[in-house]
Amino acid sequence: MSSRERILGRVRRALADVTPDDRPYAEAVPREYLREHGERSVAQTVELLAENLADYRAVVHRADAAELPLLITRLLAERGSREVLVPAGLPPQWLAAAGPVRVHDRAADTAQRLDRVGSVVTGCAVAIAETGTIVLDGSPDQGRRRISLVPDHHICVVRVPDQVVSSVPQALERLDPARPSTWISGPSATSDIELDRVEGVHGPRTLEVILLG
């Protein structure tokens, strides 16, 4: 007998005392929790996102479409990065004024090569106001998962209010499970020393979020 059959057989024998429940799953599990917490206007939701991002030490900026290229240029210059990683589908005008050399997100580049790049600029799939989270799903303006991981400085552009939802349930509704996703809430951190949060371990130690709208 294969281990698969053995384990499934053990599960079935273990459940011999359980009365069958053939209700559809939606009925078997009542969900009386809220779809979102509190009532907010669109502007208030964006404001809450900004607050919660900042609370976990992300640096929050705001810009409209005209100001965005100059803002990105300034942030890259302040950081002093000589190279910036660029996902294939990033709108070209975002980096129109930027000084650093563009390094394109290519499968052939090694992780060591990416480690020498100072900054990365991406879009995002959705942002969650209640938790201060941005979610990347590998769409063309976000690129491969590793490009927002290896460089130490991540600039993420969130289109407000279209990409902003209030809550975790609303975010999951917008995401496609088939795409790999990365949920980011502030810069990399750890609670491993005396259970207190310290920023800055392996992921980008500086996370800058630009609310574009």
């Binding site: 499968a107 209640e130 201060g132 996703s181 980011i184 809430s185 609670s191 259970l195 949060r197």
Partner: peptide, 21 residues
């Protein structure tokens, strides 16, 4: 667990993805 609204990183993946990971 860590008493955070959300932990810094959550990764979700479904099988393998061409050219990523």
């Amino acid at each position: 667990s860590t008493a955070e609204r959300m932990n810094p990183y959550t990764s979700m993946w479904t099988g393998t993805t061409d050219g990523d990971g």
